[in-house]
Amino acid sequence: MRDIVEDLLRLWHSGRTGGLATIVRTIGSGSLPVGAAILVDANGSIYGSMLGGSVESTIYDAAVEAASTGRRGLHRFGVPIGEAGLDSGGMIDVFIEPFSRRDFPEFPTVAAEIAANRRVTVFTVVWNPDADLIGQHLVTDKRHATELVALPESDLFVASFPPPPRLLIFGANAFAAALTVQAKLLGYRVTICDSRDTVATPDAFPGAEVVVDWPHRYLNTLSAAGEIDSNTGIVVLSYDPKFEIPLLTVALRLPELGYLGAVGSRAAHLRRIEDLQAGGFDDAMLARLHSPAGLDVGARTAAEVAISIAAQLLAARSGRTGRHLSESVDTAQSAQAFA
């Protein structure tokens, strides 16, 4: 639901009613995510996506009906073999409900917490013998997995929205601007840090937080505040040793980090590694550093380099190698992407 929060909020403020459909359980093999949702607004426009094909069309019709009748409930849909998300076929359970101010009065709180990068969890009653309780929501800040919870006399769907993963980009330049665009598409909260206030300006990097500070000092500050974890990525876009070596020295010593990359030519890479080795880093510690950053896709322009780095960042986040999908025995991802 995170990807359609603004659409939901716009509908909520309009005072009109739409239909919201959320996958709460999948039965079968594949990569279809529980929690994926679509919104059908009062004009019939659709926002978000689930799996496409005939099943999504059926879900769309059910969401339109929920908006017009006010009925809410669990629906089970069969997924044909080969449709996106469930490569061997299967079934999905979808909770479909009307969405409006009346139906979800707490929603602005959910939207505000997500926008502020704070954890928020929504408990929704998706089945209960008392029909009046179905569709009731409870909003908390408690940590919980996104899942369907079966209780003796009620089924609850728990949708958890943790703070988004964070990408720290050091170096304010055209590559940083292009990488910001790609990282935002992947759901990252982006911060750009540079010591030069002449180039580190918010207007030049829409969608990113911009900080003017020495890179290593800013990273030390974040680390001391407990703001670096396994969901944090760092990309160094400065070739100047006086900036990048102190920064990489701090980064390589962090106990938790999701990704660490530094761009540059082969010559810059060799110089970088020599400087870090001289600083006491051995091969095992340097193995944490992707240098030069990115996958080998022939990138030349800032936009192409950003795609290359974003692809490697995604591979690191998902524990994949970045090889061709045709070389992988797991083709469900390919089927989902191109259905």
Rank of each mutant, 00 (worst) to 15 (best):
A299T: 09
G319V: 06
P33I: 01
V305I: 15
E65S: 15
A293T: 09
G28N: 05
H216S: 07
G48R: 08
A178D: 06
D194E: 03
D41T: 06
I4Q: 08
E6H: 11
V94P: 13
Q277D: 10
V40K: 12
D213P: 05
R10P: 00
D275G: 07
E113C: 07
R317C: 02
F338C: 01
A112L: 10
E97Y: 07
I59E: 09
E327T: 15
H137R: 15
Q182G: 03
R166T: 06
K142A: 12
G85L: 00
R196Q: 02
W214C: 08
G73W: 14
S54H: 10
T198I: 00
T331W: 03
W127I: 00
L254M: 10
A268H: 15
S68H: 04
R317H: 01
A335M: 01
A262N: 15
I59D: 07
G70K: 13
A332H: 04
S308H: 03
V64K: 10
A172G: 03
L325P: 08
L254G: 11
H269D: 08
I169T: 02
T69R: 01
L11D: 12
D130W: 01
R320E: 10
F281C: 03
V79C: 08
T17N: 10
E209S: 11
P105N: 02
P80K: 00
L219S: 06
P98C: 07
F161W: 05
G53C: 11
G15L: 01
A63Y: 07
S160A: 13
D155Q: 13
V34N: 14
T26S: 03
T221L: 15
Y188P: 04
K184L: 09
E304A: 09
D296V: 09
S223Y: 02
D132V: 12
D283S: 14
D330G: 10
V199D: 05
L286K: 12
H216N: 03
S265F: 00
L314N: 04
F157K: 02
I27M: 14
A111K: 08
V94I: 05
L289M: 02
S100R: 04
T22N: 07
E227Y: 05
E97S: 13
D103H: 07
L260D: 04
S230R: 15
S230V: 11
G207E: 04
G207I: 01
L185D: 12
L9G: 02
A315G: 06
I27R: 15
A278D: 15
S14D: 09
A224P: 00
A204T: 01
I309P: 07
E256P: 05
V199C: 05
A293C: 14
V55P: 03
I46R: 15
C193F: 03
E256H: 12
A225D: 05
P164H: 01
S160C: 10
F95E: 10
A159N: 10
D296M: 10
A177L: 08
K142F: 06
I245E: 13
N117Q: 07
A37L: 02
T69P: 00
G90D: 12
F77N: 05
G82S: 01
V40F: 11
F205W: 06
R16L: 13
T121N: 13
G279H: 12
Y47H: 10
